[in-house]
Design a protein around this nucleic acid. Sequence first.
DNA 1: CATGAATGAGTTTTCATTCAT
DNA 2: AATGAATGAAAACTCATTCAT
Lengths: 208, 208, 208, 208
Amino acid sequence: MAKKPVTKPRKIAVQERSRATVGSLIEATARILVKEGFDKASTNRVAEVAGVSIGSLYQYFPSKEALVAAVIERHQQQIMQMVRSELAQVRAQPLDQAIRRFVAVAVAAHRLDPQLHRVLAEQIPRVGRLEKLETFSRENFSLFRAYLETARDELAVDDLELASFVCVTTIEALTHNAVLHHGKVLTGDRMDALIDEGARLVTGYLKG
Amino acid sequence: MAKKPVTKPRKIAVQERSRATVGSLIEATARILVKEGFDKASTNRVAEVAGVSIGSLYQYFPSKEALVAAVIERHQQQIMQMVRSELAQVRAQPLDQAIRRFVAVAVAAHRLDPQLHRVLAEQIPRVGRLEKLETFSRENFSLFRAYLETARDELAVDDLELASFVCVTTIEALTHNAVLHHGKVLTGDRMDALIDEGARLVTGYLKG
Amino acid sequence: MAKKPVTKPRKIAVQERSRATVGSLIEATARILVKEGFDKASTNRVAEVAGVSIGSLYQYFPSKEALVAAVIERHQQQIMQMVRSELAQVRAQPLDQAIRRFVAVAVAAHRLDPQLHRVLAEQIPRVGRLEKLETFSRENFSLFRAYLETARDELAVDDLELASFVCVTTIEALTHNAVLHHGKVLTGDRMDALIDEGARLVTGYLKG
Amino acid sequence: MAKKPVTKPRKIAVQERSRATVGSLIEATARILVKEGFDKASTNRVAEVAGVSIGSLYQYFPSKEALVAAVIERHQQQIMQMVRSELAQVRAQPLDQAIRRFVAVAVAAHRLDPQLHRVLAEQIPRVGRLEKLETFSRENFSLFRAYLETARDELAVDDLELASFVCVTTIEALTHNAVLHHGKVLTGDRMDALIDEGARLVTGYLKG
DNA sequence: CATGAATGAGTTTTCATTCAT
DNA sequence: AATGAATGAAAACTCATTCAT
């Protein structure tokens, strides 16, 4: 396996001007990833698209990895922000509604920026950045599991850990595939149908 | 420099020696992918590990893409061979047993060469090779769907297309995550438990 | 990019604060040279270690060359100061004692800052700065030669120019090698022994 | 201090053609070092001057360091070859003649390629290549010491180790300075005079 | 057919220096 | 004066691919 790439920002941008530079670099990286793929996202190209010199790029990002890491970070931040706010009142709800909400949130999350999501999911070499992804899905996992605790009475399953793994994996996969591989044909009604199916699948499983 | 990837094998190795050469090249590629990752799998390195000159490599594979494609092809061939043979009598079975078998087969498929599977799934840039993967899962999809047709009486779902999508996606995701991310702790009993859970999840969904 | 190295300090630091800044820049350069080598002594790094902005660095030193030149200058100033004071009364002394003193002074000079001395001697590209080094050893040469003039009666050599060259070169090489390559094992007694040997070598040569 | 650069040749040239390539690369490096200095000896420039592609350069030399190391190696090989053959019969000779020969050989060695010698001595960062230089001067040291053993009767010194250090250092420094810093004015007669002086210096020291 | 020497465009990265604030 | 953001030429090095032998 490859050594450990350095992904920590080299220097934190404090001034107005530099924050703009950092922003445009991340934005440019995301755009290139989506439009041309990981391989084309060379540091020179990123700098060019960002309208910034290659030197400036390296002032803030010690490597190409760091750049991609920042894109991932930003994307996940956005997702988790949505997830957290959407799930705020979920613990008060009965199982059926709660699960449907979980599924709907998952779909919404994938719709934030489906193309970017796809590139990040499929094309990025998983090297030295696993922790970040793990952290991310662990939060999802925790949120779900925490809900299950509160709804224990309605459940027909004992092992909440196992059940959470099954449910989170299932919801993630269904929405991921649906949005990314069938997103163009799955609009409106059919999407609702899919959410229903997913919710029914998971609810059925939990209720036994 | 790489331009448009050509993935058709340049010539079919008819003679004895040629076939051995091709085999060792594919094998070497697979080994390097697993042990050192996609980035380290340069054509020169592959040739070296295969004990073959770089010139000979290009005699049989017109590009690096072709080499990787051959590895994917071989891996999928192995998987589908297993899947087909395992599912031979499934159409005669009742739903419960059949689904359990589907899940078990999925697990077995992932266990054929989990590390290679993981690399192929995670690290290989999806460029111009999507058809192959699509073909692959389409066959799985078809097999499953075909079974559902035969078991229509037992089902509580109408839309077999949608149901197949849901089930195949779910089974694939569960087994994939289980084997690749938790493979080391999921041995014996716990693996059986997971197969049971998966089967129950899907069966419940189909039976309503 | 660097073009023609300018080595004159850009402005003389008259004010209090300026002088401190200049001092810390030279100090930082010396520290980096010793601890990390010439290659790591980038201007940005020097400024950082000195706790000064890169802009300020260029306020006082027009180029990297000028910075290194200042370090050399300071080091040589220190050495020559010691040499001059140590050799003040040497002209009054008989040959044996005088030569021993010359050798001892050479050792002392190398011991002032052996590590810096070594870096300056070995790693600094000799570009456009030869004059300075020449000036330096020329002063040593002159001091030695001046002494020989005063001690002509005791000498068995005619050509004082040649003799000075031989002696200064020898003393310098012996002490340099002794301190830099064997400095750790050459402590106390053994160092005295070496001084004796050197003195005997040179004295014997001069006396014939 | 810098990490350890890799200086081992990457691949040994076996065929006729490749040996020529390697040769021209080393030659080009040496030429550039002499004519333009270490800083200008970039790998691209070396390849260009050698009339070879940058790719070929890296087939045989893993780094710039390796290239310089090869130049050093070649130069030292030439020197040691001369030294060894010149000193073949020295052990049979009396002290006076032997020492004169040692000095003469040192001068001759420095005259093999004085400009290259100078660059290698002065400009090359001493990193990770010390062993090679050590090995080299250790051989000189050993040869000298071995001679002293055979001539013990004539010596007024006890510590042959120390004496060898003093003599080898002295001879090296004298000839080095003479040839490199005064080589242009030191021709013919004056050079002979210097050899005489050096020999007298050392002989006097050894005889007491 | 096999070999492996050669190619060179392209990539990552550094660092001395400038200049707007 | 001081700051530090920005610059970009240039350096080291890789690797898919070609081609002479």
